[in-house]
Simulated scan of single mutants.
Amino acid sequence: MAQAFTPAGVGLRPFSVAHVEQLWRRPRTPGDLIIRWTRRSRALSADNWRGLEVPLAEEIEAYEVEIIDAAIVKRVLSTTTTSALYTAAQQTADWGAPLTPGDTLDIRISQLSALVGRGAAKTVTLIL
């Protein structure tokens, strides 16, 4: 029996990022926040334990970091590296003041693909 099938390109979608880091793990004063992560790759050569960084399987390296409040996206940070800067001025515009120690921040990071758009997202809650 024949079945209709429409390919969705899921096999081409970039993997979610890994190892999201808070570079402010020590007590800090309010100010700019740096969010960093590790890229993952669909490339066959990415499964090599000797490499320092996995090869880029996309045409360009690009990411979007969504700053989330409940289900609302307050801001999208775009970057071409595996880190993003969330400035004190942006925090003030989003929250009324820079975030302080003890606050939490929900973020969603997606690698972008020229072929299929956003890849699988990584959602984390950072504790400042």
Rank of each mutant, 00 (worst) to 15 (best):
L128W: 13
V124A: 10
L115F: 09
P98Y: 05
S83L: 07
P30K: 05
E64S: 13
I107W: 10
S83H: 13
T38G: 06
G102E: 10
L77P: 00
K122M: 13
D103Q: 08
P98N: 05
G51K: 04
I127V: 07
L52A: 14
A8H: 11
F15D: 12
V76F: 11
L52M: 11
Q90L: 12
E53R: 15
L52G: 14
I72Q: 15
R50L: 14
R25C: 08
S41Y: 07
L85W: 06
L128R: 09
P101I: 13
A93F: 05
A46S: 13
V76R: 15
G96L: 07
W37G: 02
G102Y: 12
E61D: 11
L128I: 06
R26Q: 13
I109T: 04
S45W: 01
V116Q: 03
S110Q: 08
I127H: 12
W24C: 04
A2G: 01
P14C: 12
T100M: 10
I35D: 06
P30A: 05
S45Q: 07
A70C: 06
R50N: 14
P98L: 09
Y86C: 01
A93D: 09
D69T: 06
A114D: 14
S110N: 14
L128Q: 08
L126Y: 10
E53Q: 15
Q3L: 08
L85D: 08
I68T: 07
T123C: 04
L126F: 08
V17F: 04
R25L: 15
S45R: 04
W37R: 01
A121T: 03
F5N: 10
A43V: 00
A121F: 04
A2R: 14
Q3C: 00
L44A: 14
L12T: 11
D47C: 02
K122R: 15
V10A: 13
A88K: 05
L112C: 08
E58L: 06
D47T: 01
A88V: 03
R42Q: 05
F15Y: 13
